[in-house]
Nucleic acid binder design. Structure first.
Length: 110
RNA sequence: UGAGUAAGCCAGAUAGCCGCAUAUUAAGCCGUGAGGCUUGAUAUGAGGAAAGUCCGGGCUCCGCAGGGCAGGGUGCCGGGUAACUCCCGGUGAAGGUGACUUCAAGGAAAGUGCAACAGAAAUAUACCGCCCGGCACUUACACUUAGGUGCGCGUAAGCGCACACCUGGUAAGUGCCGGGUAAGGGUGGAAAGGUGAGGUAAGGGCUCACCAGCGGCAUGGCAACUUGCCGGUCUAUGUAAACCCCACCUGGAGCAACACCUCGUUUUGAACAUAUCGAUAGCCCGUCGGUUCGGAGGUGGCUUGAGUCCUUUAGAAAUAAUGGACCUAGAUAGAUGGCUGUCAAAUACAGAACCCGGCUUACAGGCUUACUCUUUAA
RNA sequence: GCCGGUGUGUUGGAAUUGGCAGACGAGACGGAUUCAAAAUCCGUUGUCCGCGAGGGCGUGUGGGUUCGAGUCCCACCACCGGCA
């Protein structure tokens, strides 16, 4: 993804959790925090509560793909962290896309 | 046709567009540096269980193909394998009408421990019962029979009759004492072989027959073991997933191992001691040394391997060997996703993290082969 | 990824060598006391069946060894910790 780096280190995630603003949806929770760069930085968290590795991978990929499609419309200069919530049934690609758009608009990023 | 048993296979396919990772390559660029980045092209890109991490190896390091003990593992037999707690074949036992399936399946006469409660007694035991003997008492008996007493007959020896409230006797019963017994009773998971007959005071392998078991010999088999014959002071509770004995195997840690490099940090920060401490987790001996720990980043380790497919040969099989062809993920916050079309429908369990061989567990739907039972028909 | 550990009522935590599971606390409930409450004292408390006396099932789950398993063995499940 051209305009986006990824968050990697644990302390980076922690900073976003502590200082950023939070908005939760049905399937995911979004943390946003302004950063000092031109780019956005993206982090995805899927805990073991979500399920086994296949479920977690699937969740992450759906988030990643949805974000990729929205990327050009997103304002720059933010750190974004998506946290997958534990749900019985995984969302479909489109369901998650709608929710992500809503959350991003709500945070003024889109 | 229905029910079932065993072995094996598949695990959505395909076309287009966008997106991801790695390798190769071309061009351009960044960093003090080890090294890396961007763009384009081409190729490749999760599983039968990738899972659980339960075994076994390879590999790496630890002074470790130093010694001993302890500890741990395995446990019918033979074979296979790098190795195994795995696989194949066989033996035995158990289950099923059958195809077939299941089994931690060495030793309890080497020793030790344990066996609660119940029961008379739990590894040797006599509570009830049965039987024998003695003593005491009670009842009955006088046909057979020892005395005693009385009466009668007889000179006498003796004979006859009577008496059972004279001693004894016989039979039955009761009580006590001393023995015999392990058949029967009840308890228990288990009571010292089982069934039948003879025998006995009552009983008992006391004797005998058969069965089980043990020992010996022979037979077939490499062996486990099978089959047959003979024999006995006629018999030996269970537990070794209790200690243990026997046989065999076993050093420890793990790729977050480990190696190399760059930058930085300090030149001593911390810990332990100097007859102690460390080098491997437990001990002893031996050996070596003052020892151990400590920041950030990069690269290697990393995928050509007990490899995959096919052919042939050996073998009953597991498997092995020969020949040929092929190279088939390698990330490091961790790559497979989205949309559309077609296939009637596309749905289970589930995602590589050093690599292999197994085991175990999860699992939608479908296919193939061989075999068994039942019903009907021929 | 690798290594190690734990699992017993609502809860903390016992249970000797395999032999009556739940000792001892906490909490909850009921009763006594009080005008009422607190404190104190007494009792009940795993679950199901039964009016009751009693009975069945219960140590994460499922098997096995044993006469008998919380304890021994095997498999699985859940949770916790350590190692850059």
């Amino acid at each position: 993804m051209k305009r986006t780096d990824s968050l990697k280190m644990n302390y980076e995630f922690k900073r976003v959790y502590r200082k950023g603003s939070l908005k939760s949806g049905r399937y995911i929770v979004l943390y946003t925090l302004k950063n000092r760069y031109d780019n956005n930085r993206l982090g995805i968290t899927t805990s073991k509560k979500v399920g086994k590795s296949v479920k977690r991978n699937r969740f992450r990929r759906i988030i990643k793909e949805n974000y990729r499609l929205l990327e050009l419309n997103v304002n720059t200069g933010y750190d974004l962290v998506f946290v997958a919530r534990s749900v019985d049934k995984l969302p479909t690609f489109n369901e998650l896309g709608k929710e992500m758009k809503y959350l991003l608009k709500n945070q003024g990023v889109l």
